[in-house]
Nucleic acid binder design. Sequence first.
DNA 1: AACAAGTATATACACTACTTATATAAATCG
DNA 2: CGATTTATATAAGTAGTGTATATACTTGTT
Lengths: 148, 148
Amino acid sequence: MISRSPEGIDQLAARLISQGSRFARTASRRAGTQRSLIALRVLANLRQEGDLRVGELALREAITQPAMTATVNRLEADGLVARSADPSDARASVVSLTEAGARELHEFRMRAAAEVRPAIAGLGEDDLAVLARAADLLEELADRLNRE
Amino acid sequence: MISRSPEGIDQLAARLISQGSRFARTASRRAGTQRSLIALRVLANLRQEGDLRVGELALREAITQPAMTATVNRLEADGLVARSADPSDARASVVSLTEAGARELHEFRMRAAAEVRPAIAGLGEDDLAVLARAADLLEELADRLNRE
DNA sequence: AACAAGTATATACACTACTTATATAAATCG
DNA sequence: CGATTTATATAAGTAGTGTATATACTTGTT
């Protein structure tokens, strides 16, 4: 039974931030990618949601718009995403995933999964279910934090 | 029931990396810290484990040793950690948490928790338990990845 | 229609963070 | 003792990030 006391909740929040960041860094590093986690998140967003504006990407990933512009610039220079004008708003530039970008995202995921798989595969059914549900919950929590 | 098929495991691994990093970045950004997640992780390590060598910190956090040296330099310059010679090995330098460092870690955690608390508090008992268990599992998985 | 205010992105600048390669100094092993 | 290994630091280059501001377009008002 998890404590609902403020202290219990606060400690849980701190641990999730701390361990979430450590796990992501550790696993992605072992996968040997050159790209930052943000860059990979951009590719993942585009794959899941389709084309997105620069500003929308910045909001979703909780970095500033200029930082996202720079990230998109690097991805574009490497041919992983493409910019195009938004027909409905000439100020906006719409980012879309290229085939090379989709490929690189997929390859990263396969390499990362290959590293993590042995450790995860050793878990019981209940812990697997916990991790799967936790991934959903973390996504929802981040969505909610970004929306406020 | 979570799929134990290779595809299911791989997708889970990819989602954990992706959502773990996004949640950590989002939450820490909202807490308005100046420090990187790595710097905060260093403080957390020292608090939990006591004094640690630079190399040991680098290993635990899966960054290179020079990157950890630089991180410790910055923390030392701000008085959050202190370096001292290891009496048992003159090559090594041992990093310890200062009172100011412990305070800053605590304050960050409180600010971050305050941001996340409303979202977490709305969850049911079962989801709270899932997150608590997931934090432990992510720590164990990262430990295991770093040890190999 | 014109103008003011707001919005989307980009640019400029300064600084942090990270990597690879290498240097320095000390420990260990033969 | 000399060779090798180990722990940390330094150097150089690049990526990543924030704040402040510029540019271009849109929207709302009169």
